[in-house]
Design a protein around this nucleic acid. Structure first.
Length: 882
RNA sequence: GGAGGAUUAGCUCAGUUGGGAGAGCACUUGCCUUACAAGCAAGGGGUCACUGGUUCGAGCCCAGUAUCCUCCA
């Protein structure tokens, strides 16, 4: 007995925490999110961009995954066999840094533990944080297929990585070589080009002079990194530079060091810049390295891997690079070598991970020869099977990078990652690269380095599906994937690399579409960062306003490709929306009288409001479906918002109260049916955006099915469409608004009854209005309601003209004739302006002749309407004046 | 230096094949109407950055200018 009316005791306020609790378990236990391998359905696949196992998810993750969740939930409801594959990334440098920090706190280090011991620690870390991330996915309500969760370091993926490395090596696309790479002295590993962030830094330009060995002259050079002079092996000038032509081939004596180095000619040198002479340090600068190659220069490395100076730095050995710079500058000044220091703004590379100043450093590393792979990627974009970037402008960003591709340094001096499958023979030094270790492992030593994390991420769309086993069921069914969702900040890091690896190894694009979104910024438009302390934890937002509010805000807060500012007020506004939905449903449930799904009957005699809301529902279904298909979630969300709040709540529910509170059982049943039906359909459309509240409401409503997650996506029902009803409804709303307006004008609240007289244009309109006079009675609260085409306008009354009718509100005592005339004159002016505007258009022959027929006709209709209104207002003014 | 984005109401942003500018928040006024006062009703507020061009018609298309922001070199 108590349970029967349980819904009536629903709290008046929407409490997200109460609703969201336990719902995810219901979904996961029901296996609603698992791909079904159902041959009767088309597959639809998305792979999650695997978050780093380093820590918490941020708002960017929440945004990215919400978009994917919306896409996959819609597709699931539209009848696809959906696979949304979850997983995480081992994040080499980032994770290793965290684990090392933890070890340091414990007073130990990776060197104490050894490689095996350290890796065990890292795996423990991974397990802990993987759990943490899954909990966050749960709170966000993501419909992930956990039965297929993958990790970049698991056996299958490691296998794929090895296969790719060895194959590329065998094809000559991976090579080992000595090059200038970006060295991070803090983490002591190589970085790829895109892991270096360039910042403009206020530094100095140090001007020095090197004396010629024969003492005949000196040559001026300048540098921003004076400590590298210790490794100078030449000075270069432009071959055409008349100032220096006579010095080419001569030698200068390197100050401090005492080494004799040659003056070489190279047209790389810019004659206009500085003195026109450049010091050359092949081991510490990429351009100098190239010049060194051309002139067979010695490469003198003066730094250790930790950024301290090495034995080649002479008396500076052991000093940190920056301390050395300071001391060296002092010494050079004393010797008179360094004669000027200039303030200088220049761009300095910093490690994306550690923030340390990156050192261009000579080192032996593994590289991918990118040109052939990039060529194939560019070629792909010329065909029908290209990757569709959304918005498409990002294709240019992508292609531009591919067209200016540089070789990819893939080795990292870390322990946490895929160890490079290369071995060196202990005796002969012979190199062996293979899928398996050498047959006689005791004679070989494996390369110490691991691969760049992105090397494994690049394989994610197919390595997660069982590749390289090309007979794998998932690989055959779910690959290529349908859409990838990610931020524009990792187009180069990840999107590009997935594309070229996929082409190379599967001969297909990895995904049909790439939906690119922006960055989440703070309310002031700044990037969220640890140093600024302006980050917002999505879990805090959820705790306060619920996952549904956060998700709706993220999904509708911007347009594709644009950044998104996080504002608490907006999340709160979304909560208000959820609360509105909650209360509308509460109202419906309270008046449903326990109607069962089977009892829902839309065939009964429908009221104007019924017909209208069903028509609007159709239109909303059309708009939402179309926009969701285009990834225009903002537009889709707005259509839902407006439909639910402005139409369903503000008008339909209010109008439905008439039959619901009345006596006619048939009317009640139809109204209940329509309330249930419209809410059911609306909840389905809103579900991908706000999964929790919609499931809660849907379960409470008379609906059929186990869960809204697997309910069918709404479709337009032509049998429930009625344009005529929409027009009649519009007139009714016009009248009600006009009356409210006049009431406000004369300070007469709704509670006070007024007399309402409506002069309909003709009998037809009069009949329509009469058929719906119960609505006018409810919303206008008239003491007396007259609807008559032949109405005699009363003298003392407020009036209003709408399309097809005139309204009069005799308000003796409240009405000031002069004020009313002044008010009407404003109204007249408004209509007169409209008339002039439209007539100007219509008097333009070019418009009439060239514009489409329906546009011209619409203008003619408007002209009639405005003229009619203006004249009626004019007549009224004259009546009042006389 | 190259590429891209932004510029619309006080603030944050929509505006999708070019056909009379919208939302949320904020503001003003009136309402405790039995779903919701975190609500309801009414209202104020914009030379759509600027200058040209295309067009019968431009917030939208084209060219240029200004300011801001990103990416690449």
């Amino acid at each position: 007995m108590e349970n029967e009316n349980q819904e009536i005791s629903l709290p008046t306020k929407y409490d997200p925490n109460a609703i969201e609790k336990g719902r995810y378990d219901f979904w996961v236990n029901g296996k609603f999110f698992e791909a079904k391998d159902d041959e009767n359905k088309d597959p639809f696949t998305v792979v999650i961009p695997p978050p780093n196992v380093t820590g918490r998810l941020h708002l960017g993750h929440a945004w990215d995954t919400t978009l994917q969740d919306i896409i996959t939930r819609v597709k699931r409801m539209q009848g696809y066999d959906v696979l949304w594959l979850p997983g995480m990334d081992h994040a080499g440098i980032a994770t290793q840094a965290k684990v090392e920090a933890k070890l340091k706190e414990q007073g130990t280090s990776r060197y104490d533990l050894g490689r095996e011991g350290f890796l065990q620690q890292a795996w423990d870390w991974k397990e802990e944080y993987a759990d943490f991330i899954r909990q966050q996915w749960e709170k966000l309500g993501l419909g992930l297929d956990y039965s297929r969760e993958r990790f970049t370091l698991d056996n299958g993926l490691s296998n794929a990585v090895r296969e790719v490395f060895v194959t590329l090596y065998e094809k000559g696309l991976i090579y080992r070589g000595e090059y200038i790479i970006n060295w991070d002295p803090a983490t002591q590993t190589a970085l790829s080009d895109i892991e270096v962030i360039y910042d403009d830094v206020q530094g100095h330009f140090y001007h020095m002079k090197y004396p010629l060995v024969d003492g005949s002259d000196e040559i001026q050079i300048a540098t921003t990194r004076p400590e590298t002079m210790l490794g100078d092996t030449a000075v270069a000038v432009h071959p055409e530079d008349d100032r220096y032509k006579h010095l080419i081939g001569k030698k200068v004596k390197l100050p401090i060091v005492g080494r004799e180095i040659e003056i070489v000619a190279d047209d790389y040198v810019d004659m206009e810049f500085g003195s026109g002479a450049v010091k050359i340090t092949p081991a510490h600068d990429p351009n100098d390295f190239e010049i060194g190659n051309r002139h067979n220069l010695e490469r003198v490395l003066v730094m250790n891997e930790d950024g301290s100076m090495n034995e080649n730095a002479g008396k500076y050995q052991g000093m940190d690079r920056f301390a050395c710079r300071k001391q060296l500058v002092k010494d050079l000044q004393e010797e008179g070598v360094l004669f000027n220091i200039e303030e200088h703004m220049h761009s300095v590379g910093h490690s994306e991970r550690s923030g340390a100043v990156v050192e261009p450093y000579l080192s032996t590393q593994w590289f991918v020869n990118m040109q052939p792979l990039a060529d194939a990627s560019i070629e792909l974009q010329k065909g029908d099977d290209k990757v569709n970037f959304v918005p498409d402008r990002f294709e240019k960003t992508y292609l531009n990078w591919m067209e200016n591709i540089r070789d990819w340094c893939i080795s990292r001096q870390l322990w946490w990652g895929h160890r490079i499958p290369a071995w060196y023979h202990k005796e002969t030094g012979e190199l062996y690269v293979g899928r398996d270790e050498p047959a006689d492992p005791e004679n070989w030593v494996q390369d110490e380095d691991v691969l760049d994390t992105w090397f494994s991420s690049a394989l994610w769309p197919f390595s997660t599906m069982g590749w390289p086993d090309e007979n794998n069921k998932d690989y055959n069914r779910y690959f290529p994937t349908d859409v990838l969702v990610t931020g524009y900040d990792i187009i180069f890091f990840w999107v590009s690399r997935m594309i070229f690896q996929s082409i190379e190894f599967t001969d297909r694009r990895p995904f049909e579409d790439v939906l690119i979104h922006g960055l989440v910024r703070d309310a002031d438009g700044r990037k969220m960062s640890k140093s600024l302390g302006n980050g917002v934890d999505p879990m805090d937002v959820i705790d306060k306003y619920g996952a549904d509010s956060l998700r709706y805000f993220l999904a509708t807060g911007s347009t594709p490709g644009q950044d998104l500012r996080f504002q608490w007020e907006k999340v709160e506004a979304t909560w208000n929306f959820a609360n509105k939905i909650w209360n509308a449903s509460r109202f419906a449930l309270m008046n449903m009288d326990g109607i069962k799904y089977e009892e829902i009957d839309l065939s009964g005699k429908k009221s104007l409001a019924d017909q209208w809301i069903l028509t609007r529902l159709n239109e909303t279904i059309e708009h939402v479906t179309r926009n969701v298909d285009k990834y225009e979630f903002g537009e889709a969300g707005r259509h839902l918002y407006n439909f639910i709040w402005d139409e369903f709540c503000d008008w339909y529910i209010e109008m439905a109260k008439l039959p619901l509170y009345g006596e006619d059982e048939a009317e009640k049943k139809t109204t209940r049916s329509i309330l249930a039906y419209v809410l059911d359909q609306t909840m389905r459309m809103l579900h991908p955006f706000m999964p929790f509240i919609t499931e809660e409401i849907w379960q409470a409503l008379p609906t059929k099915g186990e869960s809204i997650t697997v309910a069918k996506w709404p479709e337009v029902r032509n049998d429930l469409h009625n344009e005529q009803a929409s027009e009649e409804m519009k007139r009714l709303v016009d009248i009600i608004r006009s009356v409210r307006n006049i009431r406000a004008e004369v300070d007469t609240p709704m509670s006070k009854q007024i007399q309402l007289m409506i002069k309909a244009k003709d009998d037809e309109v009069a009949e329509q209005l009469n058929n719906n006079r119960h609505y006018l009675e409810r919303f206008c609260n008239p003491s007396e309601l007259t609807i008559d085409p032949n109405l005699q306008a009363p003298e003392k009354a407020m009036s209003s003209v709408i399309t097809g009718a005139e309204l009069y509100l005799p308000l003796e005592g409240l009405i000031d004739i002069q004020e009313e005339v002044a008010r009407l004159e404003k109204v007249w002016k408004k209509w007169d302006d409209e008339v002039k505007l439209v007539q100007k258009k219509l008097s333009n022959d070019k418009f009439v002749n060239k514009a489409p027929e329906h546009i011209v006709q619409a203008e003619r209709d408007k002209e009639q309407d405005y003229l009619d209104k203006r004249d009626k207002v004019e007549t009224r003014i004259n009546e009042l004046k006389s």
